[in-house]
Amino acid sequence: MRKISVGVIGLGKFGLSFAQALMDLRQEVVGLDSVPEHVRNAQDVLTQVYQGDAMDRKVLEQLNFADFGVVMVSVGQSIEASAMISLYLKELGAAQVWVKAVSQDHHKLLDRIGVDRVILPEHFAATQLAHSLVTPGLMACLPFDAGMALREITIDKWAGKTLRDLDMTNVHGAQVVAVRRHGESAYTYVPRADMLFARGDVMVVLGSTEALEKMKA
């Protein structure tokens, strides 16, 4: 499993849960919050926790938050705060800025700022619940344990080969569940064994995190 350093700004319910899940995956997580109670709750959970105002650009600079591999911004219902913090992080050169949004309009604003990923937890949870109600037994979101993952892999040296040639299950202990052709946006699910790959195609592979990290397509 690859190691990443993650900064989490805002240690309320979502932010702390996200940070704790990363700690369970043996990652380095540094938290920042202006609320003393949130800082206390996170002190024994995360690698390091700071109390400070992330709306102050100097605080982000002094704590080197732009140096993390990913920074998650989860500052409750304040659209202004999340937008300003995200803007500061992008200006400081943060590699990946992820933000929890509270509405579709908030999502649009964050897109304009140029954040790398926007999360709407309530929308995601509601969608999963609707699927489980309409189609009982459908596992819309697989409950993977820490040792399993899905990964998108872009084809390079495997160009010109088929799934039968690659024999993913026996050679890599993994399974290809979907394929997206180069230049297209739609996925083909449960691809045929005789599907021929071209350079730039993308396959979605299910397997152990260790096997996926070693895989070079």
Rank of each mutant, 00 (worst) to 15 (best):
G7H: 07
G7S: 08
G7T: 08
L11S: 01
L11W: 02
F14S: 09
Q20M: 07
D24T: 05
L25R: 12
G31N: 05
L32C: 03
D33M: 02
S34R: 06
P36S: 03
V39Q: 08
Q43H: 12
T47G: 06
Q48S: 12
D53T: 00
M55C: 14
M55S: 15
R57Q: 14
R57W: 07
K58E: 11
V59P: 02
L60N: 02
L60E: 04
E61S: 08
Q62C: 02
Q62N: 12
L63S: 00
L63V: 00
G69C: 08
M72L: 15
V75I: 01
V75Q: 01
G76P: 08
Q77T: 15
S78N: 09
S78E: 09
I79H: 03
L87S: 13
Y88S: 02
K90F: 00
G93R: 08
A95H: 07
Q96G: 03
K100I: 08
A101F: 00
S103R: 01
D105I: 11
H107D: 06
I113K: 06
I113C: 05
R117P: 03
V118G: 04
H123R: 15
F124M: 13
A126P: 09
T127S: 14
V134F: 11
P136S: 02
M139T: 12
A140Y: 06
A140K: 07
C141K: 11
L142I: 09
P143M: 04
P143L: 07
D145G: 10
M148L: 15
M148V: 12
R151M: 14
R151N: 05
I155C: 00
I155Y: 00
D156L: 12
K157I: 03
W158D: 10
A159E: 05
D167S: 09
M168F: 13
M168K: 03
T169F: 10
T169Q: 14
N170K: 10
V177D: 06
R180Q: 11
A186R: 11
A186V: 13
V190D: 14
A193Y: 11
L196G: 12
F197R: 02
A198W: 04
A198P: 01
M203C: 11
G207H: 05
G207E: 04
S208Q: 10
A211R: 03
L212C: 01
L212H: 01
